[in-house]
């Protein structure tokens, strides 16, 4: 049997209304509109500082910390000189705001000594990764804002009580 004895465990195992995904903190989206911990990577999209129509797709793999940054058309980022570019650093910084440093560090499996910056603790080398998957996940993310609202009830959302504020 799954252990239902200790208190916290019982609640976790027997309750239907649980906040399983920790709430994210609001942040400014202008520079880094999209960040996620998915598919074993911290990945996201960073808006180009010089060209309003261009974005960079940046990712860091959990465990190895190998990184990649390229435009959405797979052109490598010019800032990758054997070290993470400014887009990757921006990605990490915004991920820390959004998810909190602990959750990001846990996901990437990185030890961050007291007082150190998470971005400085990543080893890893440049390793090409397909940008298309991440970019299409970003487009899908944006597409949510175009889904029309509905006034028909969605009873299934009773399983998802409001997330409290991270005040």
């Amino acid at each position: 049997m799954t252990d239902r004895s200790p208190d916290g465990m019982t609640v976790w195992a027997r309750n239907s209304r649980l906040p399983v995904v920790p709430p994210v903190r609001p942040r400014k989206l202008a520079k880094v509109p999209f960040v996620e911990l998915a598919d074993g990577r911290l990945q996201g999209v960073v808006s180009s500082g010089s060209d309003i129509g261009r974005v960079y797709v940046s990712s860091i793999a959990a465990g190895t910390h190998n990184y990649n940054c390229s435009t959405n058309n797979n052109r490598p980022c010019g800032g990758l000189y054997g070290a993470p570019c400014k887009h990757l650093r921006a990605l990490v910084a915004e991920a820390v705001v959004q998810y909190g440093a602990d959750r990001v560090a846990r996901y990437l499996r990185v030890e961050v000594p007291e007082g150190a910056e998470l971005a400085d603790c990543l080893g890893g080398v440049h390793e090409p990764a397909p940008a298309a998957v991440v970019f299409s996940r970003f487009l899908r993310h944006l597409a949510y804002l175009e889904v029309p609202d509905t006034t028909l009830p969605i009873p299934e959302l009773h399983w998802f009580p409001a997330t409290g504020v991270v005040r």
Binding site: P26, L142, Y144, V147, D149, T151, P153, V165
Partner: peptide
């Protein structure tokens, strides 16, 4: 009961949520 349900993304939270229903 009466409802309004709106699609959103995870980075839209807090009081901003009401704006999604402003129609």
């Amino acid at each position: 009961r009466t409802c309004v349900a709106v699609a959103k993304v995870d980075t839209v939270t807090g009081p901003t949520l009401w704006k999604l229903a402003q129609r």
